[in-house]
Every structure is written in structure tokens, then in C-alpha cells.
């Protein structure tokens, strides 16, 4: 090891070396450049992470009362709480329901736009614009579209002879309604990632294929889709992580009323902390949920690693 260690490592080693000053080349500059980020990172990231763990072992309340150490009581209570498990179940269900169309529709959109049909900027505008809207705006628009009597969607449905649906009001339909609004809102992000990836496919592939007489469909399945596989992996991973954190649309579209069939994990944490004032308990649930997110990511990396090998 001593033989392979680079020069600066030996210089930095403690008193065992005869060198007089054990310091790195850019010690001061390095810390100086890191400091602004480092201070903010320590205060607003590391400290809350640590303090949250501490809070999760106390009965701290938002009102300031409590704060005594109660061991694992919050975790035990959370594990025994059916509502908490349901909120995590709902979150996973939402993630599955939203990720599939958010990836598939984005891919179809990108493939169609990259056919070279006229009006490229217009398609991009149409598909990407909703992504630029704040969640509140999206929720307001979709609440209006989903309104039972006056809403545009039910007006169209009854107009073509189909029955009107109680979209957000019906517990069995409300999650689907939220997924529809979410797909409309965020598909543009995945669409852009696919556009960038398609444009990155080397032109020669297509030229060689068409010289060999491969048709359009053949090119799609033999060149484009295989070339897009790594992109799909990235898009799916990013989308799953984003979907797991769902809060805004659910909270806003359900009009701040918690219903068992739509409550997501973050909504549950928000409710426990800011409606129930139970900061200790809400912190414990935050870490349980964080563990779930890590687990899901781990499973994803496992699957993609195996596929990639």
C-alpha cells in the first residue's frame, strides 16, 4: 500500500513521515470554496436529518409541550396503525398507476414527434407546457374539469351517451382521477428526456439499416427501442422516486379532506404533524417512509443491474 499511495497521501500522513508540514495543497482554498454550500448543507440538511431521528424517539408536540424520551413507542405505534400502512400502500399504488402511463405515453409522444412531422415546436409546447404549471394551478383546472354537474369531462361523456362519473367524490375513482391529472401534468418531463435520447442515437445506424432494406417498423424495433433502453431505466427510476413523494395534487384535489383511499404517505406525515401536532410520531413515520423509499430504490437497482448484465 505504501508503494502505491500517491504523493499527496504520504504528505498528508501524520508524524510518522519525516516531512515537516502534513498539509494538502489547497487546504484553505478548498474549504473556502466548500464553505458556503457546506454551512447551508449542515444547518438545513444534516441537522434536520439528525434532529428528526431524535424527535422520533420523543413525544414532542408542535405546540411545544412534551419532548420527553419515550424510546421506540412512536415506531411501535406506527407499525400497529392500519391507517399508516394504508397510506404507504396507497403511495405504492399511486406510483404503479402513474409510472406506467407516464413512461409509455412519454415514449410514444417522443417517437411520434421525432418522426420529423411538421410543427415540431408546437408538439413540444403542447406536451411540455403543463409541466411548467404549479401544482395548485393543475389542481384548480382539474377540479373544474372533474366537477360532477358542470365539469367538461362529464359534459363530454353524457354528450356521447356515456354515464357521468363522480370523479373525485367516489372513493374508488378518486385515485384514478388524480393519476389522470398527474399524467397530464408531468408527462412532458419524461417526454423531453426521451426526445434528447432519440436525438442522441447515431445517424449511421439508420443509414446502414435502410441500405440493408430495413423498413420503418424494423428500424423502430431493432434500433430505436434497444438504443432507448438505458434511457427508459433512468426515466423509470426518476419517475418512481417522484411518484413516491406525491403530496400536492392529492392534498389539493381532495380539498384538504383526508380520505382513506387517497391518503399518501407524505399526506399522512403532514396530517400527523401539522393537524395532529404530533411531531415525534410524525418524525417516526417519516423515517419509516424513508426506509420504504430506500427499499424500493434498492429493488430497482437490483433489477436494472441484472438486466444490464
Amino acid at each position: 500500500m505504501t508503494t502505491t499511495a500517491p504523493a499527496r497521501r504520504t504528505a498528508a500522513a501524520p508524524t510518522s513521515t519525516p516531512r515537516p508540514k502534513p498539509r494538502r495543497r489547497d487546504g484553505l482554498a478548498g474549504w473556502g470554496f466548500f464553505a458556503p454550500f457546506g454551512v447551508l448543507f449542515a444547518v438545513f440538511m444534516l441537522w434536520p436529518i439528525g434532529h428528526g431521528i431524535y424527535l422520533s424517539f420523543t413525544d414532542q408536540s408542535l405546540t411545544g409541550s412534551g419532548g420527553g424520551f419515550i424510546g421506540f413507542a412512536n415506531y411501535l405505534e406506527a407499525f400497529g396503525e392500519a391507517e399508516m400502512w394504508q397510506s404507504i400502500g396507497n403511495t405504492l399504488w399511486f406510483t404503479l398507476l402513474s409510472t406506467v402511463p407516464l413512461v409509455v405515453i412519454a415514449l410514444i409522444m417522443a417517437l411520434l414527434v421525432e418522426q420529423g412531422l411538421p410543427g415540431k415546436w408546437l408538439w413540444r409546447l403542447a406536451f411540455f407546457m403543463p409541466y411548467l404549471l404549479a401544482s395548485t394551478v393543475v389542481s384548480l383546472i382539474w377540479i373544474w374539469l372533474f366537477t360532477p354537474q358542470l365539469g367538461a369531462i362529464n359534459t363530454v361523456l353524457t354528450g356521447i351517451g356515456l354515464p357521468a362519473q363522480p370523479w373525485l367524490q367516489d372513493p374508488s375513482l378518486s385515485m384514478v382521477s388524480i393519476v389522470i391529472a398527474t399524467v397530464w401534468w408531468t408527462v412532458g418531463f419524461n417526454f423531453l428526456l426521451y426526445i434528447a435520447a432519440i436525438q442522441g442515437i447515431p445517424e449511421q445506424h439508420y443509414e446502414a439499416a435502410s441500405l440493408d432494406g430495413a423498413g420503418k417498423w424494423r428500424q423502430l424495433f431493432s434500433i430505436t427501442l434497444p438504443q432507448l433502453a438505458p434511457t427508459t431505466v433512468v426515466v423509470v427510476i426518476l419517475q418512481v422516486l417522484a411518484s413516491l413523494k406525491v403530496f400536492d395534487q392529492i392534498y389539493q384535489m381532495m380539498n384538504q379532506v383526508v380520505t382513506p383511499s387517497t391518503q399518501s404517505a407524505i399526506v399522512y406525515i403532514f396530517d400527523a404533524g401539522f393537524t395532529g401536532y404530533r411531531f415525534g410520531y410524525a418524525s417516526a413515520v417519516s423515517y419509516i417512509f424513508f426506509a420504504v423509499v430506500l427499499l424500493v430504490s434498492l429493488v430497482q437497482f437490483r433489477i436494472t443491474a441484472r438486466k444490464g448484465a
Binding site: A282, S283, S286, F289, V293
Partner: peptide, 24 residues
């Protein structure tokens, strides 16, 4: 080490920190 810690924290969704951050 600083780089490793910074990169590892990408995994922490800001939403799970709302309780301790608000307390802060």
C-alpha cells in the same frame, strides 16, 4: 468524505424532513 456525504444525501427526499425543518 464531504463529497460522499453530499452525494449520499441526494437519496433523502426533502419531504421527509418537513417536521424537523419546521421545528428548526
Amino acid at each position: 468524505w464531504l463529497y460522499a456525504i453530499s452525494i449520499a444525501s441526494i437519496m433523502v427526499p426533502p419531504q421527509v424532513l418537513i417536521i424537523p425543518l419546521y421545528y428548526q
